[in-house]
Design a protein around this nucleic acid. Sequence first.
RNA 1: GCGCCUGUAGCUCAGGGGAUAGAGCAUCGGACUUCUAAUCCGAGUGCCGCAGGUUCGAUUCCUGCCAGGCGCACCA
Length: 558
Amino acid sequence: MSVVVMQKEQLRSVIEAAIRAAQRSGELELSTVPEIGLEAPRDAGHGDFASNIALVAAKMARKPSREVAQIIVDHLTLGEFIQDVEVAGPGFINFFLSKQWLNDTVRIIDQQGESYGDSQLGSDQKILLEFVSANPVGPMNVVNARAAAVGDTLARLFRAVGYTVGTEFYVNDAGNQADVFARSLEARFQQLSDPDYPFPEDGYPAAYVGDLALRLKETHPELAEMSLEDRLAFCKRWGTDQMVEMQRNDLRNYGVEFDLWFRERDLHAAGALEKSIANLKKRGMIFEAEDALWFRSTEFDDDKDRVLVKSDGSYTYVTADIAYHQDKLQRGYTKLINIWGPDHHGYIGRMQAAIQALGYSKDTLEVLILQYVALMRHGQQVKMSKRAGEFITMQDLVEEVGKDAARFFFLNRSPESHLDFDLDLAVQQSNENPVFYVQYAHARISSILRQGQEMGVFLPRADQVDLDLLVHESEVALMKQLATLPDEIVAAALQREPHRITRYALDLASLFHSFYTHCHILGEKEELRNARLVLAASVRTVLRKVLGLLGVDAPEQM
RNA sequence: GCGCCUGUAGCUCAGGGGAUAGAGCAUCGGACUUCUAAUCCGAGUGCCGCAGGUUCGAUUCCUGCCAGGCGCACCA
């Protein structure tokens, strides 16, 4: 349990005791004791924690809220940990605590290191997080990059709160687009020996297909002798494999590695689609109409029923997806989370219908929809056109601004917000660039510790220093921020809001920079110096922790 | 027409049933003989899109409307 939660629990029991005492004395008439709300006020002048209990209880008590607050305060038994209490505003009760809990926080960080903030809340869940899943027919785009950052950090957050997590990239290597891609590659291959060989009308004109054809010619010249059918099949398999490798490599450079790259073609080969259909049929969810086989998804609130087998006998995309999700569940996952782009939101209904049709509850599948990314350069939106080949890929972006800036910028916005990505800002090495701001705080602390060592001053353990010496406003604010990390991690994980962590990192860095300006460390007398060294070190530990969650490097110097 | 997301300071965005609505940037003014000035300190800025409703209290929740972005295939 986090120190913050412990403080709240303690305060809650103190408040509850006061209410009961007031009830016994007849000053407060309440049929039940309402939920006692406690929060850390934004304004430090409002204490460490504030309760709105008097405002909530005022109506039931038939007394003005300020009066209720005063009655509760009069019956409070102040232990050692509460230094002061006040009634404020419309009836808030503000608690000012002794800073023991903040000292405890620093000691805990020293003990736990970068596992500080981890918990075991989610130990009973086994989550499968699927994200990116870009088609293996070309380079990834910037929404894929956003999805990769969000998905990867969510996975790290889930692990931090104790979930068992598997991350997967679903490779759609058996569908229509893979066929179009195979035909494009085959045509480019043939054109190397016969320039007049026709290129498919709907083919991919981009240059990378031609490059790929060149490599194909070098490594597999025997292809020229095969039948068209065999050649296409080879192009499909070999070509998508090449694309997968490229994507895997791009993602690795971006700090994202998946536990599993799941191939759609494996589902087909294993007969999984037929099995899923049979399963649905058994449950009475299938009907035939217009020469096609349909899934009665309207049974589960979908807008319309969906075709699984087209009139030409081929499968639709949903069919493979149903089989894939069934496979996930059969592997023992209790919660499936997919991160999709905004163009797929209309797809949620049919997949949740499928999950229910297979006998699972609707919320077994949770879909997070990301919104679009607009790249901004010189204050103007960068226009992209696939057709004209003007297209900034994920790799282009990472090469231009670096992994750290790209990830941080994507994670610095709530996932459902439309994102303006300022390319000029992302490459700036200045205070305007938030990722540098945070990294600089880490480098500064590292530098202090380094210089300390050079002059023979070593970092003491937290329990060897007098943390009560840390009383400066900026020190106390810093310690409070450190104390909130465990709760922030839990909130970010449970609410799927990784941007809470970038925010936290920025706030922590800001508080550190302020502390740094106001409080010197190495030049101070030994006792104070040591206490501040421990504080600075704990800030560094926490910065490492949060940057690690974000997948951003924590440089020792800049 | 139906659905999803968004609408908060000049700009980019947080926040969220409660106490004077926040941050960064931009603007203006300060701070380096001292551990990295890639920093800090200070100043101004708001019909929280509009209109109703619920509530002791709404910028936050609900409904309707307006505006912007994006979807609505026997494509993926």
